[in-house]
């Protein structure tokens, strides 16, 4: 007989001293294209959410996850786990400094476009909200099998980080928890 899964509960507003921010880019020497994604977390009224936590899980620049179940014939990067954690600031803003992940295998022949897996936690959020960041300027993005599970280009666009003109490696991407511009969240 199966055991009953432990229920999720909100992270609440007081997590900042119990959980620590973790830089996904542990060193400037990590090989790959350096990128910085800046944005804000917004609620259904358009107000900035100032007590959210964002976790990052990603492959390295070769598209390899640092995990024993990633059996792709690719090398991991010493010193790069692919995990990071950022807290939004008092104005709901965040900045993710990392390297751009490579494409990773899909369930069928072909690859998933480069993407970063995101978990969002906050007061008023009873369980982890999962989403993904893709790159609007990556030619593989349009053919990504996960993006193509989403109905309509408007909704798909909520997962695309937009390059900033004149600043190579800089992207903007917001998380909108509710409303017209609501980010796509996944049931994982």
């Amino acid at each position: 007989m199966k055991k009953i899964l432990t229920s999720s509960q909100t992270v609440g507003p007081f997590f900042h001293f119990g959980l620590k921010p973790i830089a996904v880019l542990s060193s400037e020497d990590i090989p790959g294209e350096k990128i910085t994604i800046t944005g804000a977390v917004l609620d259904g009224t358009g107000a900035r959410v100032n007590d959210a936590m964002i976790e990052i899980w990603q492959a390295n620049s070769r598209g390899k996850y640092d995990h024993p179940e990633d059996q792709q014939d690719r090398q991991t990067t010493p010193g790069f786990t692919g995990f990071g954690r950022v807290f939004v600031n008092g104005d709901g803003g965040f900045e993710i400094k990392t390297i751009k992940p490579g494409p990773v295998d899909w369930l069928e022949p072909g690859q998933q476009a480069p993407h970063i897996n995101i978990s969002l936690f906050a007061r008023g959020v009873l369980r982890r909200m999962a989403t993904r960041i893709y790159f609007a300027d990556d030619p593989a993005t349009g053919g990504d099998p996960v993006l193509n599970l989403i109905d309509g280009p408007g909704r798909r666009n909520t997962l695309l980080a937009q390059p900033v003109d004149g600043r190579p490696g800089a992207y903007t991407w917001n998380i909108v928890l509710k409303g017209e511009q609501e980010t796509v969240f996944f049931e994982v």
Binding site: G44, Y65, V104, A122, F186
Partner: peptide, 15 residues
């Protein structure tokens, strides 16, 4: 105001 109004998209489990 912190919960999505649209249904979650079911994601198959990949790597």
């Amino acid at each position: 105001e912190r919960s999505p109004g649209k249904p979650l998209v079911l994601l198959p489990h990949s790597l």
